[in-house]
């Protein structure tokens, strides 16, 4: 079962989903999915609770100072163009699908991703149900080595890959590909040639492939560069552990 993305549940909790058809689709899913029901209930509590907290006077200035310091003018322009292109493409595609063809709203799965320092100490490798899958390097990236540990019970996967060469005008990007061919892209954060990525959530049971490629600086909305490695997952899930 593919769960409703948390963002949609939050919009539902805020009563911000305008499409009647989409609301009905989510309601039908909620009727049979305790996992999403529980998540929605939590967000409803958060939204309904009121606090009179006011941010400190200096917070806005601190954030702006840091943000503007990390964004060079050229990068700002380039990133903005990319964002405009992505956002416009998404909006155009959404309008086309929902407006013209009136197809059933498509709910995308999402898996939570944390990288390197953001990963809390994990013991995934030591759990008895954990499986290990070797990373397969591709073409010009034969020096890349790594493993993926996956546990369908704790709904976690850990990817560790070594051998990345620093790139000047490019970034490494991870592609998380679901069984229904949905694709989630994440920029890979590489430290000293190594990257560690922790994936969490029931959606890991819906993944069929993970791969990485070289993409333009800041990431790409679709795969353009050469692949660096792949990790096939489709036959490595414990089907009996899948949640209803």
């Amino acid at each position: 079962m593919i769960h409703i993305p948390e963002m949609k549940l939050i919009d539902m909790a805020m009563e911000k989903i305008e499409s009647e058809e989409e609301r009905e689709h989510i309601k039908k899913h909620l009727a049979i999915c305790p996992h999403c029901r529980e998540k929605l209930a939590k967000w409803q509590i958060v939204m309904e609770t009121e606090t009179n907290l006011q941010p400190s006077a200096e917070l806005k200035e601190n954030i702006w100072k840091q943000a503007s310091a990390t964004m060079k003018p050229k990068e700002r322009k380039k990133k903005a163009k990319t964002t405009v292109a992505f956002a416009s493409a998404f909006i155009a595609a959404s309008l086309l699908v929902f407006g013209l063809f009136h197809t059933k709203p498509h709910v995308h799965p999402t898996v939570e991703v944390a990288q390197n320092d953001r990963i809390e100490e994990e013991n995934l490798r030591f759990y008895p149900e954990t499986k290990q899958v070797a990373v397969i390097p591709v073409s010009d990236f034969n020096h890349i080595r790594g493993n993926l540990w996956m546990n369908d019970v704790t709904e976690e996967m850990l990817l560790e890959v070594d051998g990345f060469i620093p790139l000047q005008e490019k970034d490494y990007q991870l592609w998380i590909i679901y069984e229904n061919n949905d694709i989630q892209g994440e920029l890979l954060s590489v430290q000293d040639g190594v990257t560690r990525v922790l994936f969490k959530g029931p959606e890991i049971n819906e993944l069929k492939l993970i791969k990485a490629s070289v993409e333009p600086k800041g990431g790409s909305s679709k795969l353009t560069g050469p692949n660096t490695f792949i990790v096939p997952l489709e036959n490595n899930h414990d089907k009996e552990n899948r949640k209803e």
Binding site: M7, I10, D11, M14, W43, K79, F90, G219
Partner: peptide, 27 residues
């Protein structure tokens, strides 16, 4: 709050409108 603002300013390309609103993404 500071972390979230900086992250969204630096990684706004990761936002996918079909998954939900910007407000939900922030949440």
């Amino acid at each position: 709050c500071q972390e979230v603002f900086l992250e969204l300013l630096q990684k706004s390309f990761q936002y996918q409108p079909e998954k939900g609103s910007v407000k939900a993404w922030l949440a």
